[in-house]
Simulated scan of single mutants.
Amino acid sequence: MPSLSPDERAWPPVLKAGWLRQTFLHWPFRPADVQVLLPRGLLVDEYDAMAWVSLTPFLMADLRPAVVPIKTRFTTFPETNLRTYVRRPDGRDGIWFLSLEVGSAAMLAARCAVGAPYHLGDLSVSEHEGTVVYAGARRGGDPSYHLVVRPGDAIQPSDRDIWLTSRWRAYTRRFGILFETPVEHEPWPLFTGVIEQLTEKLVRSAGLPAPDGDPVVHFSPGVRNVQIGASRPLPELRHRPTRGSNPRTDGV
């Protein structure tokens, strides 16, 4: 069950960073609509009998190898993730990324390393009259988004808030092998948020139907002490197909 704090340490860390000015938009979907997008070895994780898909734009700050203490402006850039919530057959939960839009070409190396679906784009994060403005368009492709959010009051997170925001590992797939990457940071400080403008094409581009209704919204000023551990291959799942899995996602 997801919790405010990680259930394992990302130790030794490989990368360090801060995730700042992050907005979470969460939509419920029929589990079957999401399951077909998952690779073998992962199952949809459900809350209130629904799968959930989240759009999470933020500012990646001071990304660097864990052994390098120096921070430079070249390692700070916008990123926007489209993600869903998954579990392994043994119940170990995490995140599966449907797409990752990034404003730094250096991050494309991660696509080759562990199969994360990074796409280079022209992205921005800015503030205007009390709102946070996110915009992005994928280079060489159609998916784009524009979001204006007005942060509200701090909240005491409910079980659903924690379930939607606090996940401590990500799964990726490369050459038919599932990888698990642990993450560790302080609990998210969560606030309410009001959407003032929203247009997006990322959800449909990922192979999902258009979202139905308004999303659940969270805003966070961010977390600054993010530690990302080494990606671990899970070869024992390589030949264990999951009912409803999609062979198109077995490699990137």
Rank of each mutant, 00 (worst) to 15 (best):
F77Y: 05
S3Y: 13
L198P: 10
V149T: 01
Q35H: 06
F24L: 11
A10G: 03
E180D: 14
I95V: 15
R9T: 07
P157D: 13
D153S: 15
W27D: 04
F74C: 13
S126Y: 00
Q197E: 13
L234V: 08
L108M: 09
V252F: 02
A66M: 05
G18P: 02
Q156F: 13
L234F: 07
F175W: 07
E236A: 09
V14M: 11
P31V: 05
Y134G: 05
D212K: 10
L63Y: 01
D161L: 02
P89I: 14
W188G: 02
R64V: 10
R40M: 09
R240T: 05
P221Q: 11
P182I: 04
A10N: 05
L98P: 02
F24A: 12
S126N: 08
P89S: 02
P247K: 12
A61W: 09
A51S: 15
H239I: 00
N246M: 09
G91Y: 09
P157K: 14
S104H: 00
S104G: 00
G115N: 01
P57S: 09
S144R: 13
P247Q: 11
A49W: 15
A51Y: 06
A135N: 06
V14I: 13
I228N: 01
E184C: 03
E186H: 12
P157L: 15
R174A: 09
D214S: 06
D250C: 10
S126H: 05
G152P: 15
L202C: 03
P57F: 03
V36P: 06
A170G: 02
